[in-house]
């Protein structure tokens, strides 16, 4: 009984938030246009949070995702400005994510550094590298190919289902695809189930003949790639890249996973629960902005809500 209350409390919270904004913003909140808008706004955070879930399943986490997102945008933009085609820019950015993620995984799994320390270190390394290769400036304008920035502006027209003039943005679709992939990896594949085993007891998992080091590196690599994808989405959306633009992603992504963890039976991260966390953060942000709540107050509110949710869940677990 109480376990269920706790598990679904966070979902209930999301519904209450939606009801609150629907009542207070009757004309603008619960409209197709706004909802599509929200889905696009949260898509980058969503991608980072979904892939962050992969490492958090092992009780690890990755503080470097924000600076990796910035770095990947810069890598793509620099390649574009050197005249390379879109696929090379995108490929280069994803490669940066892969290599950076593997490096995180190497530090954590092979060298044995605590994830907090290791990824705090790479956070500054990635960020410094982004400044270095961009000379600290924003890359924009002509340097960014129209095809690249066009991606974020377009989508699948929804006229056929009666929503005249609206499009389902490609960014939203990207978020959904990443969600689906992470869900398959974590819930359907043996790879993901071994990650949950590592999170459950790393020593028991090792003694069961599981290649713990390799799996951990693989998981960090996926998180790195996720961060790179988010960086590309961001760069496409603002048609520019600067070395700090991903900075806000890391804290929100971790907060989203924590919010989701309150829904796990054993407090474990689940990617669908992370989606609920992302929606809570994204919808709060959208609604409060529309209600013209000051952005500082917004931050205080969001922080308080994350703490409240996790605290209730921790107290509920104690019975």
């Amino acid at each position: 009984m109480t376990a269920h209350m706790r598990q679904f409390g966070t979902l209930l919270g999301l519904i209450l938030i939606i009801v609150f904004f629907t009542v207070n913003l009757p004309d603008t909140f619960l409209t197709a246009r706004n909802l599509i808008n929200v889905s696009q706004q949260i898509s980058m955070l969503a991608v980072v949070a979904f892939t962050m879930t992969i490492v958090m399943v092992m009780n690890d986490f990755d503080l470097s995702v924000g600076s990796m997102a910035s770095l990947s945008g810069i890598v793509a933009a620099v390649l574009f400005s050197m005249g390379y085609p879109i696929w090379v820019g995108v490929g280069g950015a994803l490669l940066a994510g892969l290599v950076g993620g593997l490096f995180n995984g190497f530090l954590v799994a092979v060298i044995g550094i605590l994830p907090f320390v290791a990824t705090l270190g790479t956070l500054t390394i990635f960020s410094g590298t982004a400044f270095l290769i961009s000379d600290g400036r924003t890359i924009f304008g002509r340097d960014i190919p129209a095809g690249f920035s066009g991606f974020a502006r377009s989508g699948i027209p929804l006229d056929t289902i009666g929503l005249e003039g609206l499009k389902l943005p490609y960014l939203t679709i990207t978020g959904v695809i990443v969600l689906l992939l992470v869900w398959i990896i974590l819930e359907q594949m043996n790879f993901g189930r071994r990650l949950y085993a590592i999170g459950g007891n790393i020593e028991a998992t090792r003694l069961s003949g599981i290649k713990v080091k390799r799996l951990r590196m693989g998981a960090f690599a996926l998180t790195g790639i996720g961060a790179a994808i988010a960086g590309l989405m961001y760069a496409s959306r603002v048609a520019s890249a600067n070395p700090t633009q991903g900075a806000g992603l890391m804290l929100d992504a971790i907060a989203a996973v924590f919010l989701g963890m309150t829904m796990g039976k054993e407090g474990e991260p689940r990617v669908l629960a992370t989606l609920v966390g992302v929606l809570i953060l994204g919808i709060l942000d959208n609604g409060l902005t529309q209600m013209k709540v000051d952005s500082y107050i917004r931050e205080i509110l969001i922080g308080a809500i994350v703490i409240a949710a996790v605290a209730t869940s921790a107290l509920g677990r104690r019975r």
Binding site: G199, G200, N201, A204
Partner: peptide, 9 residues
């Protein structure tokens, strides 16, 4: 508990 089981699974 420490070497054999993942208690939460």
């Amino acid at each position: 508990r420490s070497e054999g089981l993942m208690m939460t699974l």
